[in-house]
Amino acid sequence: MKMNLLSNRRQKTLWMMVIGTIVLLAIIFSKVWVDTDKILTNLNTRNVAPTWDYLFGTDWLGRDMFTRTMMGLSLSIRVGLIGAIGSTVIALTLGMVAATMGKTVDRVISWLIDLFLSVPHLVALILISFTVGGGFKGVVIGLIATHWPSLARVIRAEVMQVRSAEYVQMSRRLGKSNGWIAVHHIFPHLVPQVIIGFMLLFPHAILHEAAITFLGLGLSPHEPAIGIILSESMKYLSSGLWWLAFFPGLALLIVVRLFDKIGESLKVLIDPTKAHL
């Protein structure tokens, strides 16, 4: 009965994914469509509150906050993307290795997973990115090294479950090799898990990148990521320039929420037990 109110959920999810992808691409390629001259220092237009010309206002050096936010987000998303892809690859590899290479390997990898999960993300991230020298490289390595454990655990469990499934045992008796079973039986089960895992890792990575950059431990001030913009703006909040932090913060939140939402709906869509609700 609930159906009528909800209308077609599949359609809704699909639309959201299209919109989300357009927003993402628009932000990544914001260099093409925003007026990059507006980011230069212009002392004639300092501290302008939001207007139609300066949607997000300008800062203490007269730089257009909208342009800065877009370019900052673009950088953050790119860092997040690299981080999420790297983490997914690690998760996939370790998860499959743990499930297939015997008990000792499984124990070592499970221990590693538990180790990483027992330390707060942010702390591990700061430590790692600091150790490898900070900056762009540090943040990316840190993100990749910290975001894989939960997905690795999911993949390990999935592989183990499929491997022991009756249809795989049948397949063995029909003379199929391990490689054949991995490609034809196990892999199709992993694809949705990996896609969803990636989609849900992505907003995490962006948020964590912004967080450590905000704390001054991530990207350097020459690379105006969203975290830098926010931390610089903090100093001016008390002097009434609220728009400096408000709009970039809001934009970050919207982007993160958008991708979280897409990941979640994708999960529901792929889940066969909920597929028709």
Partner: peptide, 28 residues
């Protein structure tokens, strides 16, 4: 290799890969 003794069990739902179309199940 192909086992000369084949088994059919009680629950067919567990004996076929839920992500395979039935043609592929037969072709296995």
């Amino acid at each position: 290799g192909m086992h000369p003794v084949q088994l059919v069990l009680q629950h067919p739902e567990q004996a076929v890969n839920p992500r395979w179309k039935m043609r592929k199940v037969l072709e296995e």
